[in-house]
Amino acid sequence: MDNKEKHIENGWEPKIVAFVCNWCTYAGADLAGTSRLKYPANMKIIRVMCSGAVDPVFILKAFERGADGVLVSGCHPNDCHYNAGNFHARRRWDLFHALLDFAGIEKERLQFSWISASEGKKFADVVTKITNDIKMIGPFKGYQEMNRQFTTEFPEQEKEKLVQQCTEAEAVNG
């Protein structure tokens, strides 16, 4: 039995955060409710005005604060309430997703989806899918761990030194 199954057996439930836009996905989630569709209770929604306003820092903060998975969702391309916000979201997400992958964080932990106000069913499906995906991968402690190490194991002077080194390296390189 590997770790993942152990987690599930232990009754572990993943924590998932969704950053959704006010106009499409939030309304899509409302529709899922009015349609009485059922999905797991693991996800909590944070409403923003537009998916374009989702800062990568939000996602990192969520991981830092113990989220095991993050969903970002907005209007379909060309349906953005603000014309182009979701395109910016997509570009930013593409880069950031690749970066997470590069850093060794499982890609499935961060998912992106277009869900319109009329896609209550899709919302329910996406929540179910991401919850199952995260359950399969298991809990995410990596970022918390790293953050903890950085704050506790690096005393203030060490940190400054590190920053100094980075700056010098930059100066040399560029």
Partner: peptide, 19 residues
């Protein structure tokens, strides 16, 4: 949002209340 995003979409009272 305790109705559309919670009570209507979940069945288990314990987890819904927790959420």
């Amino acid at each position: 949002n305790l109705r559309e995003h919670c009570s209507w979409v979940h069945e288990d009272v314990e987890s819904a209340t927790q959420k």
